[in-house]
Design a protein around this nucleic acid. Sequence first.
DNA 1: GCCCAGGGAATCG
DNA 2: CGATTCCATGGG
Length: 275
Amino acid sequence: MNYFFKDGNAYIEKDGSLSLEKTFDCGQTFRFEKDGSLFKGVALNRELTLKDEEEHIILYNTEPEEFKRLWVRYFDLERDYASINKKLAKDEFISKILDISKGIRILKQDEWEVICSFIISQNNNIPRIKKIINTLCESFGDKLPNGYTFPSPEKLLSVGAEGLSVIRSGFRAKYIIDAAEKIKSGQINFEDIYKMDLEAAKIKLMEIKGVGDKVASCVLLFGFGFMDSFPKDVWIKKVMEKYYKENFDIAKFQGCAGVAQQYLFYYERYINNKR
DNA sequence: GCCCAGGGAATCG
DNA sequence: CGATTCCATGGG
């Protein structure tokens, strides 16, 4: 996408391939809120304020150097979603829902935050996932002017599973600690995971207690940029049996299956008023 | 009270 | 193996 800078802000020229509303609301991140015409949140230890205007999306208070170094990748701005949409539209059902789902981009989020967030997501609903993560950050993150960073593995190890009781995450607390331990010990090494193929990476992440096939798939898609990762949650399973039956062929989404997954997930929740 | 929520571990047959 | 059951918690 094209962008320029003015008065300390970045202006992204809208072309229909980025909707803040959909991208923040499709269940891949839990830390952005709509505030009037603004979207506010914390990502990569920094506070972000964005505005969706007629011609531009404004990312406030960022210098060109920082924008290019962090936010172009975070918002996946260099990927050509128009051609992805063209490819996905060859699927009859996706071509029908494209108008509703297009504008979602796969965010490239912090790996640890995504691991932790999707451990919390298991057998849970999105409003409560958000609440737990907010409490986690307020309780153990570093204070920013208007928010909190996501707490590090070391910080959570120092409070332990008992200390996590304030976030009311139930049985998931011990899973969070296990993840933190395996990351600190080096058993789970992010650089190694980037070098693996999708299956090997998934199996590696599943060494963490509380991380199964679905959570690992979300982590690889939203945290590591594995664009062919295709998390199968209850909504996607519903989509498959409702619209595809036995005709679902993931092979035709090669290279962007994760985008297809988000489109389907967002659509089914959208028509069921889950937003 | 019952059911479910972006599942996964433990247990059982 | 596949199929059940249990796991904490809160909202509808």
